[in-house]
Write a protein that binds this DNA or RNA. Sequence first.
DNA 1: TTCGAGATCG
Length: 600
Amino acid sequence: MLISAPIRAPTWVSRRRLLEEKLSDLHKWTNLKQVKQVHAQIYKANLFQDLYVAPKLISAFSLCHQMVLAVSVFNQIQEPNVHLYNTLIRAHVHNSQPSQAFAAFFQMLSDGVSPDNFTYPFLVKACSGESWFPVVQMVHAHVEKFGFFSDIFVPNSLIDSYSKCGFVGVNAARKLFTVMGERDIVSWNSMIGGLVKAGEVGEARKLFDEMPERDAVSWNTILDGYAKAEEMKMAFELFEKMPERNVVSWSTMVLGYCKVGDMDMARMLFDKMPVKNLVTWTIIISGYAKKGLTKEAIGLYDRMEKAGLKSDDGAVISILAACAESGLLGLGEKVHASINRTKFKCSTLVSNALVDMYAKCGSLDKAYSVFNGMARRDVVSWNAMLQGLGMHGHGEEALWLFSRMKQGGFVPDKVTFIGVLCACTHAGFVEEGRRYFYAMERDYRIVPEVEHYGCMIDLLGRGGHLKEAFRLVRSMPMEPNAIIWGTLLGACRMHNAVDLAEEVVDHLVKLEPSDPGNFSLLSNIYAAAGDWDSVSKLRLQMRRTGIQKPSGASSIEVNDEVHEFTVLDKSHPRSDKIYQMINRLVQDLKEVGYVPKAYQ
DNA sequence: TTCGAGATCG
């Protein structure tokens, strides 16, 4: 009797099939340990040359932000095909390595592998920012030459990329959009999105009205346009008209009201919306934080955590930036504590946000401790630390940090020099400031921008070198903006330069006709010089033109609550006690010989 | 399609 042996595939076939099954979703894995384990298995099975396995492995390493490993997998392949190149390009783009993506593209061309309909869209996705405009143009020309317009995905992605390249980009996108033979809803949405990003809501609205059909994205894009332009009336009208509203629509409205500072409306919508996501929570918490409403911001942050939502990098960065902006150390510390609870280490981006927050809130020790503990620092980390030191008067230490930064092999950028010059200003290092200002262009090839001139004029002005400051303003290659003149005016006040101040105010009024602050500064300068005649004339002129000076408010944070007060303010329940204390302080000051400036 | 690090005066 013949007993047939069970039929079995050769071992290598079954091993491969097993692996294939196991690896079917490898390209979505985000656990580095698992990916590395599989990587080792693939190596052992001698399958690293396999054109099915390799792209998946590259994608997985890319998701784990391990580009060195991804590239090494790629380099093992002797004859990469178009799919493999596309995967590598996409991996570089995903990890914010646009130059490497293009390097891979050119390598692909020189290897004689033809790009396909996927290559170009991946490639141009990396292009964001004005400097990328010529690159998108190059890709566009390439696409036209080789006729890849057969798939609408290609021109759509070009429109999208052009839109990210600033003003010139949007025009190019418009051109392409006009000549496109066939358009789908994505083409329209990309074009409208581009116009919105460029701040041309009116144009965007026109296209929106022309669209043959609209989806949720179209509605939300135009809604975002109005919210970004702070035209909340238009936004609300549109919001009411929308056929269906999703989380994004509601969040966009909340964001818009936060931007215009209408926290009541923002909160009302936030409470009313049926579904909230992490972004929504981030928007409202940052909104409260930016307005300095610590209690609300902290309360909502606690509620978010209780609701079981875990912050991601974006949420954390957003909230920390808001804390930095208005000095909410309490919330910032809370966010830091919850990061420490959930994460072993944070990304460079998050650490930078922490350093910046601590530095801006005046907690330099904590800024230092985050900064020193960072595994990987970049230019931004140094800039944030340096600026924090300079801002709080530690000019010498800031300059020391600057030299440490250079020793560490970091190349200073334009923001670094703003920090350096500011540090010089706050420490009164006029000579050093001048030196850095000229070294910036000569040694680092950084052309001074209006911000650098601003710092420099502040430095010279405060130091009493008014004439030099004025000369520098005249020699600027760009038009001086209101901040430049404002800086100069501040310097005039400091050194009682009445004539110069009048000239500066003339310029300021042209740039900011409705800003009453400029007049009151001039009025203070007249007062300081004892020219009461001019003061009353100016007051009269202000009354005639209907310019009113809003009273300046000061605020103080006590027990997580911000108290605001103005001149002669009696609104506080314990106002009597406060004034008693002030009078006592004034008395004490007089006793030690202080004379208020106005009576000098 | 919503949030997302550093940026000159007061």
